[in-house]
């Protein structure tokens, strides 16, 4: 079975097949035999090419957290391209006027209104989390097409805050 994970905007594909009690794995063009020694979540002990790894694993939604050899990773199960494009918060390159929350937190101020003309870098929304304030700015000059949040609202990271449309675009 194929697994596609993304982390830090990098996609990684691996193929995992049962082979008796073991697994056959292919990643980065290399094939190897993996033996699961113990699986008692969050602990996962396995051997890869004869070397034993002691990992801790946990899952929340699409996010897979792994601690292994002193490092912690979070991998997101990549969706199909079509599903991702349709998803809210999808950002399609630099031309997009969709402005998303850079961190989870509360909306402490909505600084513009729908229909306002804004300049590049102009603050749109004021956020606060863990006693820290952050201004979320317009990615480019244009007109505020829509504000998606209200004062006091709690937002998740990557949640859409506003949309700024380029003039004539």
């Amino acid at each position: 079975m194929k697994f596609v994970y993304s982390s830090h905007a990098q996609n990684e594909t691996l193929d995992l097949e049962r082979a008796g009690d073991d697994f056959e794995i292919e990643i980065g063009g290399e094939r190897a035999r993996v033996q699961v020694i113990a699986f008692a979540p969050p602990r996962l002990i396995f051997s890869y090419n004869g070397k034993i790894f002691d990992a801790r694993v946990a899952r929340a939604g699409k996010k897979h957290w792994v601690y292994i050899q002193g490092a912690t990773f979070v991998f997101e199960r990549a969706e199909s391209r079509a599903a991702r494009d349709a998803a809210p918060g999808a950002r399609e390159g630099a031309g997009s006027g969709i402005v998303v929350a850079p961190m989870p937190g509360q909306v402490r101020g909505v600084l513009v209104e729908q229909g306002d003309a804004v300049t590049e870098g102009q603050p749109l929304v004021l956020m606060e989390a863990m006693k820290m304030e952050l201004k979320v700015n317009a990615p480019h000059a244009g007109v505020v097409a829509k504000i998606f949040v209200t004062l006091g609202q709690s937002v998740e990271r990557e949640q859409i805050l506003a949309e700024v449309i380029k003039r004539g675009g």
Binding site: Y5, L14, V36, F39, P41, F46, Y48, H64, F75
Partner: peptide
């Protein structure tokens, strides 16, 4: 660090856990 060997092992662990879970 993006290209850490541990990252590869982490990916394998994630896939294993998902299959086993």
């Amino acid at each position: 660090a993006p290209h850490d060997e541990r990252r590869t092992m982490g990916l394998i662990a994630a896939a294993l856990a998902e299959s086993l879970d």
